[in-house]
Design a protein around this nucleic acid. Structure first.
Length: 425
DNA sequence: AACTCGGGGTA
DNA sequence: TACCCAGAGTT
């Protein structure tokens, strides 16, 4: 063997080593890429075959997509469907929504929860009319700037309506990707969502952003469900690391929420007398905070110890309105759980005493009729009439309930009352 | 990062 | 019960 041969042999060895390493790297890349392309391919095949027929999937109208996405925030598909259909029927275009009285928009949202969504939706509709001629913009910057549109909804509108390869990472996507790629990061942390968002674009097959993002969520909703995922019928089970390693029930990792704090409240169902017979007194909540702008029975915080003490405070509330009343008696108790508060609402019932009211009004020099607003004001509601009011009171009849929005708690109480179920405790 | 903001379905 | 749902806005 010559010196030259030794030299060549060394070269060959180094070359062979480098070659083997390139092959290994390539195979690892192919394997990794395979797992991803497999996922995207099988997911789309499954979706094309088994996607649900949903109202907002019948057209690719950005307005429909947008409304559905806002309604679907923290809300199940089955719950949203009837609301969506009624909403689109009442407000067929963005301009119709922008020009509607706010009361009407909130009324259409009644029972759906998270009522600021309704307010923001209309505000955004007005943004779109003013800035974009009533057409949903298709640039990320403009979509994201709309009120009530965050990272998920922006991505959903851009991908589903405009087929842009943008991530739309919701709870479903976090769960599906956590399991498929065996990601143990806490999905409650924003950092995890951002990481998933970075993974999405390379998973989206060319030209299929709309279907892909919807397929991902559809899989989470139908197959890769939170408690017991249906791995045996999952279209991507073969390469799902979570399932392969038997960890699908441990994923995703998520810090658990605190339980709602208990609050005792005391409400009054005050029945009108004389000209206001058949009506009850309600008030409108402030435009910010819990149940913003919704109507309710008057109520106060209750200590829970002494009912008489709490009732006295409730009485003061009425006195401030220039009202007097017959003795209050227990009517019913209702429970209601929000995300962070649990209400126990005791409801008292009483009847207005017009004589005393007239006397009070005479003493204070306030005309009887002016002491309390009449329900007739309902007719003259011109949209912005109530927008700035921090608090408003009305006497309403059963019929008036179709015009103003109540949270479910009071809806149930009032429906029971007006349907004549005199449920005394 | 933690809290606020509804209501209901599901195991 | 406990958990979660096609999350966003505020602090």
């Amino acid at each position: 063997m010559t010196a030259e041969d030794h030299k060549n042999e060394g070269k060959i060895d180094r070359g062979r080593y480098a070659e083997e390493r390139r092959v290994q790297e390539k195979m690892a890349a192919v394997e990794a890429e395979d797992s991803k392309t497999y996922f995207s391919r099988e997911l789309l095949i499954w979706y094309d075959r088994s996607k649900r027929d949903l109202p907002w999937r019948r057209h690719r109208d950005p307005y429909f997509i947008w409304v559905s996405e806002i309604m679907l925030q923290q809300t199940r598909v089955d719950t949203v469907i009837p609301y969506f259909n009624r909403f689109i029927e009442r407000f067929p275009t963005i301009r119709d929504l922008a020009e509607a009285p706010q009361e009407d928009v909130v009324k259409m949202w009644e029972g759906l929860g998270y009522y600021s969504r309704a307010r923001n939706l209309q505000a955004a509709a007005q943004q779109i009319v003013e800035l974009h001629g009533g057409q949903m913009p298709s640039e990320r910057e403009h979509v994201f700037a709309l009120k009530g549109v965050g990272p998920y909804t922006a991505g959903a509108i851009l991908s589903i309506a405009f087929n842009r390869p943008e991530p739309a990472v919701d709870g479903n996507v976090l769960r599906v990707l956590s399991r498929y790629f065996l990601i143990e990061d806490d999905i409650a942390k924003p950092k995890t969502r951002i990481m998933m968002e970075k993974m999405i674009p390379e998973l989206i097959p060319e030209g299929r952003a709309s279907d892909f993002n919807q397929a991902l969520m559809e899989l989470g909703a139908l197959i890769c469900t939170p408690k017991s995922p249906h791995c045996l019928i999952c279209p991507v089970m073969e390469h799902c690391r979570g399932r392969i390693e038997g960890r699908e029930r441990d994923l995703p990792v998520k810090t658990k929420a605190k339980k709602p704090r208990p609050e005792q409240r005391l409400a009054v169902l005050l029945e009108g007398s004389g000209e206001r017979a058949g009506r009850v007194l309600v008030r409108r909540r402030p435009n910010t905070g819990l149940l913003a702008g919704m109507w309710e029975l008057p109520h106060v915080a209750a200590g829970g110890e002494d009912l008489g003490l709490d009732a006295a405070q409730l009485g003061e509330l009425l006195e401030d309105r220039g009202l007097s009343w017959s003795p209050m008696s227990p009517y019913m108790t209702a429970e209601h759980t929000f995300s962070h508060i649990h209400w126990t609402m005791r409801v008292l019932i009483a009847r207005e005493e017009p004589e005393a009211l007239a006397q009070l009004a005479a003493e204070s020099g306030v005309p009887y009729e002016a002491a309390v607003p009449e329900a007739a004001e309902l007719d003259g509601a011109e949209g912005i009439a109530n927008d700035g009011a921090d608090e408003e009171w009305r006497w309403i009849s059963r019929e008036d309930m179709s015009a103003i929005a109540f949270p479910n708690l009071f809806l149930n109480i009032l429906n029971k009352y007006f349907s004549g179920e005199g449920e005394q405790e």
